[in-house]
Structure formats: C-alpha cells, structure tokens
Design a protein around this nucleic acid. Structure first.
Lengths: 139, 139
DNA sequence: ATTTTCCGCAACTCCAACTGTTACGCAACT
DNA sequence: AGTTGCGTAACAGTTGGAGTTGCGGAAAAT
C-alpha cells in the first residue's frame, strides 16, 4: 500500500460488501484479501462504523456488515467518514505572519474550500452499489 | 512551518516581490523573513525558476527577482511550478488487484482529475499582483 | 461456567517523506 | 585575489502513517 491507502481499503471492502450485503466478514478475512493487517482493517472500518456506514459485532460469529443498503451509501459518505481533507481546516492563524502571507493564505484557503465542496458533491452522486455493478467479477 | 510549506513560502515570497519587482533579494534575507533556511528557499524558488517565474543570479550583487511582471503570474502558475498534485498520477495500476478495487480506483481517479482541473482553473483567475493589492502592509 | 472467537484499543516499531542544516563548488562583481 | 551569493549533494531531526504485538471485553458454542 502507498498513499490514499485508507480510502482504498475502505472502498475495496465496501465494494465487496455491496455485492453480498448479508454476509458477515471478519477483520482477518478482509485483511487477507486486501493484503494488510487485521488491526489496520479495524482502524479504517472503525471510522466507517463511527460514521454510521458499518456495524461490527463481537463474539464467536461476529464481524462486519453494512449498516444500511448499498444503494444509500455514496462515495462522499466514505470520503467524509475518513477525515481526509484537501485543505487543512485552518487550525490556527499564526498572528505573527505578515499581511502578505495572510492575504495569500486566505485566498488559497477559500479556493481550496470551494474545490473540496465540489469534490464532495461529485462523490455524492455515485453509490457503492452502482460502482459495484461496473465491476464484472464474481467473488 | 507545517504543511503546504512549499506553497506558502513561494506565495509569500512572490507576494513581496510583486510589491517591489525591481528589488533583488537574497536567499538569506528571504529565509530570515520567512523564518526558515536559505537552502530551503533556494530549493523552493529553484522550482519557480525552472517554471520560468523567477530569475536568479550569482555573484556579488546576485539574488532573486521576478522573471516577468506580477500581473502575468497567477496562483495556478505557482501551484503547477511546485509539483503538488491532489491525486497521485496513477503511476502503476497493480494488476493483481481484484476488479472491485479497479472499478473504485478508476472512478475516484476520474473525479479527482476533474476536481484538480477545476482547482487550477480557479487559481488561474487570480494574479499575485491582485492579491498583493489586497494586503495593506507597507514593507 | 468455561472455552472459543471475534472486536477494541493502546503501545511500540518500522518506514517514507519532508524540513532543516552543513559543506563544498561555481559564478560574478569589486 | 577576495568577497558574495547561488547550486547541489549529503546528512540529521521530525513527522505521519502502516504494520505488529499484546491484553481486555463481548458474544456465541460447548
């Protein structure tokens, strides 16, 4: 894995779940299929659970499954569930910066915010169910 | 400095240069004003020179200055000069990935490419000269 | 009730990318 | 020749993420 690995892992897993929504999957199985570690899977899917996209259960026949039908989960939901943002949310404006730096920073932040809204809107138009239909696999 | 430091440093420097285009500035002075190191300044401004935005000269009265009038340098020029991209340019499609992963990856890459074009277009509408006018400093 | 199986979470290591720093070579002006 | 400043390579320090291990808790099977 390299970058955007969290998003890749999340989408990959949700894609398979969209194909068989009733099947309950274990972290270990998901990790094996994705070529990573069960703990990493729990971390990423934990964010999706926190956002209400997934449900996890402990115990003997526990595991992960979709919290709602795949037709109602968009790529934007996944993107927002993980906290990956294009622009840093301007944690602190350093007050000692000169006016020039402030002006540029403000302008760039504004543009980035607009672009991010555009991104979210675009991602919101596609559900994991639709994407899943694009793939012609049989697993 | 934190993240987006290259872009911040570049814009900050160009902003001041837009105010006094004829003044030649040394790496050391720029670094002192930005709170960083001269070598870092040379690295970042070196990218801008490679893109044709700046000119640098060696020797006793050497330094950095704009390669063309600030009215003709847009934020998009600076963004493109540094190689910061929103989406990785799909270096290699790992062929062992399953079809589901491919479908998602392709979809997300398409959306990201669209959004990046939108970003570049937005940035291209503002010049460093205009932004400079917004700032009301006097240095 | 005990065992098994799974998730939840914390702590640690490993690794890549970036910034900062030092050092040396080259170019240009005095 | 000496001074000044850029160009670049090499290295240290820092940061963030992925991977790993270990332990505790919950739920089903026995």
């Amino acid at each position: 894995m390299k970058r955007n690995s969290r998003l890749s892992l999340a989408l990959h897993t949700l894609g398979h779940m969209a194909g068989q929504p009733d099947r309950i999957r274990k972290s270990a199985d998901i990790a094996a299929h994705a070529g990573t570690n069960p703990v990493v899977v729990r971390r990423v899917l934990g964010s999706l659970r926190q956002a209400g996209l997934l449900v996890s259960e402990s115990g003997h026949s526990g595991g992960w499954r979709l919290a709602r039908p795949p037709e109602e989960i968009t790529l934007a939901d996944v993107y927002l569930a993980l906290d990956e943002r294009l622009a840093a949310p301007d944690a602190e404006e350093e007050p000692h910066d000169c006016t020039v730096a402030h002006a540029f920073h403000h302008r760039v932040s504004t543009v980035m915010a607009e672009v991010e809204q555009s991104l979210i809107q675009k991602l919101g138009k596609t559900t994991i169910f639709e994407i899943r239909e694009t793939a012609t696999d049989l697993s």
